[in-house]
Design a protein around this nucleic acid. Structure first.
Ligand SMILES: [Zn+2]
Ligand SMILES: [Zn+2]
Ligand SMILES: [Zn+2]
Ligand SMILES: [Zn+2]
Lengths: 192, 192
DNA sequence: AGAAGTAATGTAATATTATTACATATCATT
DNA sequence: AATGATATGTAATAATATTACATTACTTCT
């Protein structure tokens, strides 16, 4: 018989949204990452992260809310914002200020079984850089960010400004959209 | 109704808010700048810009709305957002995405009788960089931005990304707030 | 000056994003 | 099982921004 009907413990995640194997691996990885930081990856947070990971473009908080409603739960705004806050604090997602929307941290997208949580934290927790395509909506997190950050650190140093976080958002046209004269809108953005 | 009480033409600005001589000079300069770009600096837009220039920290749209109500007019949100859009398009103000608030372009703050409108446009219209103090709320527009922009242009070039605009927002503590151990909040931010 | 066309503003309603405050439930530890 | 800390549920509201349409003001041309 069924053991219990309550949600399984975070170590044995459910899969109410039918996330792909790839995303489930990423979710598992994320769970390990925030466990290292003393955070608890609950089912709620896992589902929200899974939905952000599943999207091909940045997702808004209320989009996520709608998607979560299709499950058994009927969450309200605070639910989703709390989950997003948690994921932000642990560097698992980023907020695109210009879009009021959220993307997974690119370090989660690139498969890596090896643990470089420290690198990840240092690089992404409090700063992130993005290329945002106005045509297809795709967002790319800049990988060679250190150069940008170094310049910013240098400027802050000169001005005696204590940097706590930084965001860089470049808007324009991605490679595909720049070269497509068809004016097509909404093609699948190139995966990061 | 009395038809004689209408607002004066934009070439003869009124001063319903008692802006200082300094700010009025900046407003006049701004008027010349957007005239060069074929824009009309109306009384409404002038007042909004004056209020943004008068503030020591970024101002929100609804803050401006409240301040405008104290005059004869009773504006609604579209009024203020249209004025802000105009000022943004002409590079006279910037929007701080992280704060959903607006600051004057620093080039307007630094007195300069000489006309370098082209420089101004190139430098600020579609990109801006800020240091935002979490303690006092002061915002500084980074002057040596070209270095940051160059790095970004370089990265975009490598990725075949067509840059149309860029924003850099660094949050932390300004020089004054870094050095003041008193924990005082709200001291007058150092003018840019 | 008068008419016509364009640009700017007024107004009401609504949409979108986010937070506060307080109650309840779950988890970890003893 | 009792406890305290963490997480979630719920209702109400705040803060930011846009849509659609009516009106007014300005510019240009006769
Ligand atoms: Zn990241
Ligand atoms: Zn694109
Ligand atoms: Zn500027
Ligand atoms: Zn400060």
């Amino acid at each position: 018989m069924n053991m219990q009907t309550r949600t399984p413990p975070s170590s044995l995640p459910d899969n109410s949204y039918g996330f792909s194997d790839r995303i489930q691996q990423q979710l598992d990885h994320a769970g390990r990452l925030c466990a290292l930081q003393g955070g608890r990856m609950t089912a709620q947070r896992r589902d929200v992260l899974g939905l952000v990971l599943s999207a091909t473009t940045p997702v808004g908080a209320y989009d996520l809310l709608e998607q979560l409603k299709t499950s058994g739960r009927k969450p309200a705004p605070p639910t989703i914002y709390r989950a997003l806050d948690f994921l932000l604090e642990h560097g698992l997602i980023h907020r695109i200020e210009r879009l009021s929307a959220f993307v997974p941290c690119t370090h989660l997208l690139h498969d890596h079984a090896h643990d470089h949580s420290h690198d990840h934290t240092d690089a992404c927790l409090h700063s992130a850089q993005f290329l945002i395509c106005r045509n297809c909506g795709g967002v790319t997190e800049i990988a060679d960010a250190p150069r940008v950050l170094d310049v910013l650190k240098n400027i802050c140093g000169k001005k005696n400004f204590t940097m706590q976080s930084a965001s860089v958002e470049v808007e324009g046209l991605c490679e595909d959209c720049t070269h497509s004269t068809t004016g097509q809108k909404g093609h699948t953005p190139t995966p990061n």
